[in-house]
């Protein structure tokens, strides 16, 4: 929709506009101190999780019964657990699972939720009715119980945690995306595209979707800590990650039996959960304020 007198081609202008939007966003985000702290923490955590075998001198699975429940020392910075394994190393390896569980199901529920939300909002009518009633049901279902039922049916392992959490998460994404799609549908550029005879699927993919991406980024960052929380709760209750795998929730659950002798075994992984959840929340808040100030409540 560039005027014919404009010297720049349409895509160049678009690129320019995008660049400045991106620049503004980055600038606003960088001004947010808490968000930057959160980002630094998450980067550190990712590095720690990826390079765990090279960073830690200990084996997370090696059992040493003569070194049970040792207090913190220079060899074992956070002491050892009931099998004589280094607590810090177990937490570092646990970060791998927690990060993967934070990211993968959030991505899946984001994809399903976006698709459902755009279809529901753009097509309206019967599609909208069916999708939204389905979303109502999923939202009315208490999340933890739904996840527990899924784990009961499919069995407790990592893949099923992905499924359970994706099932829990997609509906709220769909609701947000739908309401944005409804607002976008009334905009002139969508009307113009429709008047051009653009196919519905193209309108949805090329015109609606790019406009919900900023919201999706925010929803994604805020879904990660939630998924980490759910996974740790499921694992704590014994229906999530199974031993000898090290997930933070499981580490707390196993450590709680030795609260008296070695409280650090249970407390340290909890600190890891708390800090990670806080960090992602800070990033999400920062992104939300930077990308779309109107979403701020």
């Amino acid at each position: 929709m560039t005027s014919p007198s404009a010297p720049l081609p349409a895509d160049a202008i678009e690129a320019l506009e995008e660049a400045s939007f991106l620049r503004d966003t980055v600038r606003a985000f960088r001004k947010n101190r808490m968000a930057m702290v959160g980002l630094a923490f998450v980067l550190l955590l990712v590095l720690g999780a990826v390079f765990a075998p090279w960073i830690s001198p200990h084996d997370p699975y090696r059992v040493a019964l003569d070194e049970q429940l040792l207090p913190a020392s220079t060899t074992y910075w956070l002491g050892t657990d009931n099998f004589g394994r280094d607590v810090l190393t177990r937490i570092l390896y646990g970060a791998r699972i927690s990060l993967v569980v934070g990211i993968v199901p959030s991505l899946i529920s984001l994809m399903i939720g976006t698709m459902m939300g755009i279809l529901s909002g753009y097509l309206g009518g019967r599609t909208d009715f069916v999708v939204m009633r389905l979303a109502d049901m999923m939202i009315a279902f208490p999340s933890l119980l739904l996840a527990m039922v899924v784990m009961y049916t499919l069995g407790a392992n990592l893949l099923n945690i992905f499924i359970a959490l994706a099932l829990v998460g997609w509906a709220s994404v769909a609701r947000v995306v739908r309401s944005q799609t409804l607002a976008l549908r009334e905009k002139e550029f969508i009307e113009a595209a429709r008047a051009n005879g653009t196919a519905r699927i193209t309108v949805m993919l090329r015109h609606i979707f790019p406009n919900v991406v900023p919201t999706l980024i925010v929803l994604f960052t805020l879904a990660i800590p939630e998924a980490i929380m759910w996974e740790s709760s499921l694992s704590f209750l014994g229906v999530g990650v199974q031993p000898p795998e090290a997930s933070w929730g499981l580490l707390v659950a196993k450590g709680k039996e030795y609260m008296f002798q070695a409280p650090a075994v249970a407390i340290a992984p909890g600190v890891a959960i708390l800090l990670t959840v806080l960090a992602f929340n800070f990033i999400g808040d920062g992104l939300r304020d930077a990308l779309d100030p109107s979403m701020k409540d």
Binding site: S232, F236, A253, M259, P263, I267, L274, N281
Partner: peptide, 22 residues
């Protein structure tokens, strides 16, 4: 309050048990 929301319930429960009960 952000701390309250970000703390896993099972963990804050353990902390309180440790401090106030044990």
């Amino acid at each position: 309050s952000l701390l309250g929301v970000s703390m896993p319930i099972f963990w804050s429960a353990l902390l309180l048990q440790y401090v106030f009960a044990m």
